[in-house]
Design a binder for these strands. Structure first.
Lengths: 341, 341
DNA sequence: CTGAAAGCGCTTACAG
DNA sequence: CTGAAAGCGCTTACAG
């Protein structure tokens, strides 16, 4: 199939011959600069008509090479498969298209090498800007891009060498924890152990800030913040499941509540309950830092934090559009708390 | 930020000067054809070293223009935000990269105009092939691409003018319905009304096939297949919710079971139960044609069909690799049924 | 083993 | 109002 179809493509020269004019004129009609060149409307229409009949499609590599502008904006993203990242991808495309920029997304699976590889490919295609979402080492990417003259913006995880837009993780976590503790305080039977924190990595900025919010809210409610109640053993479902299993084994007690740091960790927590009696779920108070439509219907009343992706993307694109900011600007967007009906 | 950073980029000419050799030699070293040109290893190493020091990055638009090969493979996709489509996107990228093709994905929101627009852009960037996933009118896209010499492959929704890879919707629906009816037959209290089908569109191939499987399984179990039990009022959550509300109002009865056609429709069904008493959910038998990890934990035992994306993508790429097939080949991949523990 | 030169398909300053 | 020509940064057939 492939080879057979690769017939010769129509160029501006072919059209020039058919229209009995020059390639310059055709090029200028087809790229919209014909008015400023004072080309006659009659000629413009003639050229447009022939181009349409011949199925002309501009060759962007030639155009971009000449113009020194690719018209492409790049983004790297850890994954597509949860509501947070997939809406980032969708809104990125929408905003890019609204500006006549072609969006180029690469999914990099939180693999540092793949992140660099994807960025290198994008640089080869001469993307004009790059948005680095949830990059493991944003500054490394920024340095690479800056050395090639390409501006970058960080999203979700902040860096120090390019402007960053992230959720206000501290206040989101503080609010979520406060709400969980307040629900708990109204329960007739307070249940077993302490409120615990599960999921994420101590090494990443977001997890650190969320833990700080979690601990501060505990203090506000008069609870001793204990390090042993924080189990940031990784985002992956099995890491979260292990963490929960471990604390139940160790304390011999179900926690009274759980702050789950991401939907992917929530899967792990749910797996544990599935194995050890889904009925137990009713006894605890559950919160998740991230939103998933099905989580609402879980057996327990669950509180969720929904990150404000539209506002975050809006900030990113105001910088893409040229808004002046400090090179290490950090913009934090408040997420909203979702309380099941 | 943007403009300031756009400094001059290093070209093979700059490197030629530094290495005291010609641009041809540099080009050939850097694109890996130097051995067949019998360039000395010493020269190759010298050039590589300087290129690395100078932060050289090949300009793919120049390279592609000259070679008449962009190295890009395109895909359009209705959306990212469910497990089925997001895993299609991830696997597409993986398979493309494994072949040194750069994956370019556009999310087209089931909007026919956006689908054509996205494909046109990709054609301008001279993608070598296009995978059309879930396109509303695959044949229209195929015609457009073929007229420009670009082969296409349909995924998820089939067309008649290009090879298609889809799930075996009929047998998946037949199996899911049979399993639902068999679960139902073992229930002490069979509950209210008939088993119903909710979600999707009568106009699309997949929905039609699934309805056929649903009806045939009903026949096998001795149930009269009734048109009024099929409510393909659209995929959107609110359409599904309305459909359910309507049938309950009309019959004055909860259906004994529901075949939900996609996770997005499942959201609508769950919304109805949320409003009208989530406890009711226990009374019915639920199946979903699509898989979502959280659906497992819903209050009802749910059966799910998980489409086999890895095998589907594998078939697509064997054609990308040049496997000969009929121009209207239809490859159906059996999905698997997932029965909650 | 290496280089000069043509050409991919555009855009745009220049000339008229 | 329009055209000839240069040039974007590569690749590759040709010549030596």
């Amino acid at each position: 199939v492939g080879k057979a179809l690769n017939k010769k493509r129509i160029t501006i020269y072919d059209i020039a011959v058919l229209a009995k004019t020059s390639a310059s004129t055709v090029g200028s009609v087809l790229n919209g600069t014909w008015k400023s060149r004072r080309i006659s409307k009659a000629m413009a229409q003639k050229v447009e008509k022939i181009a349409h009949e011949q199925g002309y499609s501009v060759n962007m590599q030639a155009s971009a090479l000449r113009r020194k502008r690719s018209g492409i904006i790049g983004m790297i993203l850890p994954m597509y498969d949860n509501r947070y990242f997939s809406s980032i991808a969708q809104l990125f495309e929408q905003e890019a298209r609204a500006r006549d920029l072609f969006p180029m997304i690469s999914c990099t699976l939180r693999d540092p090498e793949l992140e660099v590889e994807a960025v290198r490919s994008m640089l080869n295609y001469r993307v004009e800007q790059i948005v680095c979402t949830g990059a493991t080492d944003p500054d490394k990417i920024t340095e690479l891009c800056h050395s090639r003259g390409v501006p970058t913006f960080n999203l979700d995880l902040p860096g120090t060498k390019a402007p960053s837009v992230i959720s206000d993780n501290y206040s989101g976590a503080f609010d979520l924890t406060s709400e969980l503790l307040s629900v708990l305080s109204r329960k007739p039977d307070k249940g077993g152990g302490d409120m615990i924190f599960i999921g994420g990595r101590n090494s990443d900025h977001n997890t650190k800030e969320r833990i700080r919010g979690f601990q501060d809210a505990n203090k506000k409610f008069g609870n001793q913040p204990r390090e042993s109640n924080v189990l940031a053993w990784g985002y992956a479902a099995d890491k979260a499941e292990n963490a929960l299993k471990n604390i139940v084994d160790r304390t011999g007690n179900l926690p009274s509540g759980i702050f789950v740091n991401s939907t992917i960790s929530l899967e792990g927590v749910m797996n544990w309950f599935q194995k050890c009696g889904i009925g137990e779920l009713k006894k605890i108070t559950l919160g998740c830092f991230d939103w998933d439509p099905f989580a609402i219907f879980l057996d327990s009343r669950i509180l969720m934090i929904r990150q404000n992706v539209p506002d975050m993307m809006h900030e990113i694109f105001s910088m893409v559009d040229g808004k002046k900011v400090k090179p290490n600007e950090l913009i934090e967007i408040k997420p909203t708390i979702i309380i099941a009906p």
